[in-house]
Design a protein around this nucleic acid. Sequence first.
DNA 1: GGCTTTGTTTTATA
DNA 2: GTATAAAACAAAGC
Length: 281
Amino acid sequence: MHFTEFMPELPEVETIVRELKKSAKNKTIMSLDCHLESACVVASGINAGNLKILDIERRGKFIVMILEKNLRLTVHLRMTGRLMWHVEKGREKYVRAVINFTDGTALYFSDVRKFGRVWLCRKKDFEKVTGVCRLGIEPFFSSFDDFEKTFFCDRLGRRKRGFLKNNLLRQDLIAGIGNIYADEICFRSGLHPSSRVEMIPKNQFKKIYQNVMACLEEGILHCGVSVSDFVGTKGDLGKHQNYLKIYGRAGDECYECGSEIKKIRVAGRGTHVCEKCQVQK
DNA sequence: GGCTTTGTTTTATA
DNA sequence: GTATAAAACAAAGC
């Protein structure tokens, strides 16, 4: 199966945020045009006009623009959302919102599906309105201790259960990991994605944590994964797809042992695995 | 036309 | 009540 969409996970969103820090910071918004009502959630009584973007941050897979007057303009791309400085040819009808600036430029939010969302709200409502309040730990701002507690223990201190991959994907535990990086983390850790977390020995926790960090860091270093289109706000390609060790390589040989990489389903998700290198716990 | 792709929410079950 | 699993949703490509 060949797919053409760019699936933004933490490294891809971080790439966009870094670009926006260069290109959108300190611009003043003239207006926010909503082309699809369900994709735009604007708090009542708030108008984006004549507000400067003071900074741009990331939380999990959320892009957060910090505006004047304690306001937040937040974007989640979900699966197929794109935030770009131009309208892509043939995709005019998928533009869901436009941020117009006073200097005549515009940032276009387009989305083939209708999952992506833009929120404009007050700082005090930001977490609740966007759903950010349900996010777990932020990888680059958390220690191994944070990770161990959140990922392997429930609130009563008991061992968490479930498939390893499924838990890696849970945004309420650790924010930012999606299907691609989950497969990579499992491979690098030598663990089968359907390993039960309650069966993983404690002495392997640190290795998993380090692989989470390493996979995300490398993704950022290469400006994210572009499966066949673009990545950035200007249409530039990410390069990390060239460095993936397991995702998208079904039928190919494992770089470590040479055996064939299989594609299976874990928790309803397409999953890539080397049965020889990745042990089932 | 049916199946696939995935991030998140919602519903169901243990 | 809590935790986990599964279903639902969206739209397009093959």
